[in-house]
């Protein structure tokens, strides 16, 4: 049974153009076993469902009007043992941001790859993009980096997080 829900409103972070993922994971990490999280966001945070689902959280999303959403995350006790390590671990807050929304392809990819080459293992970069960067993913995989991403509910901004991997396979 859930004894109580901890509230977290990430709308101010999103409105400021920030990346709320770290704050959410931090709040999830502080929950007691019988607690849930009540998240407020200005879009339906679909990518989060899979990430938290793998950590054993079910969800119930309710549209509040005006584009705002309230999502209840509650422990189901069924954490997926086969989920990739990356989705079970908390990522640190991003130390670098790249805004590629007003750049034509392939400039966002060029900027992101240039930025992550200068970052040490374990750090996280956040990027805002106009499209899903389908050609970037194979390059990230080859270089041993991990990533998470998804579109906002209105489908115009793709939020991408990249964590620098340790097994960087330089040619």
């Amino acid at each position: 049974m859930i004894s109580r829900y901890v509230d977290l409103d990430v709308r101010p972070i999103l409105r400021a153009g920030g990346e709320p993922f770290a704050a959410i994971m931090e709040a999830i990490g502080r929950l007691a076993p019988d607690e849930g999280l009540r998240l407020f966001a200005n879009f339906k945070p679909t990518p989060l469902f899979a990430v938290l689902g793998a950590r054993g959280f079910g969800n119930e999303a309710i549209e509040m009007g005006g584009g705002d959403w309230q999502v209840l995350f509650y422990p189901t006790g069924e954490a997926d043992a086969y989920a990739p390590v990356d989705s079970n671990s908390d990522w640190p807050a991003p130390v670098r941001n790249v805004d590629g929304r007003d750049l034509d392809p392939p400039e966002p990819m060029v900027n992101i790859l240039a930025a992550i080459e200068a970052m040490p293992t374990g750090e996280v970069l956040a990027a805002l993009l106009g499209r899903e960067p389908v050609f970037l993913f194979p390059e990230l995989a080859k270089r041993g980096h991990a990533w998470r991403g998804g579109f906002d509910a209105d489908g115009t901004t793709y939020r991408l997080l990249i964590r620098i991997g340790g097994k960087d396979a330089k040619p």
């Binding site: 392809p105 392939p106 990819m109 060029v110 790859l113 240039a114 930025a115 992550i116 080459e117 200068a118 050609f135 390059e139 080859k142 330089k170 040619p171």
Partner: peptide, 18 residues
């Protein structure tokens, strides 16, 4: 141009001038 660029220079991005 795009496909050729991606094939040749994609692996070098961020690591060498392209």
């Amino acid at each position: 141009a795009f496909v050729t660029w991606l094939e040749c220079y994609g692996p070098l991005l961020g690591r060498a001038p392209t």
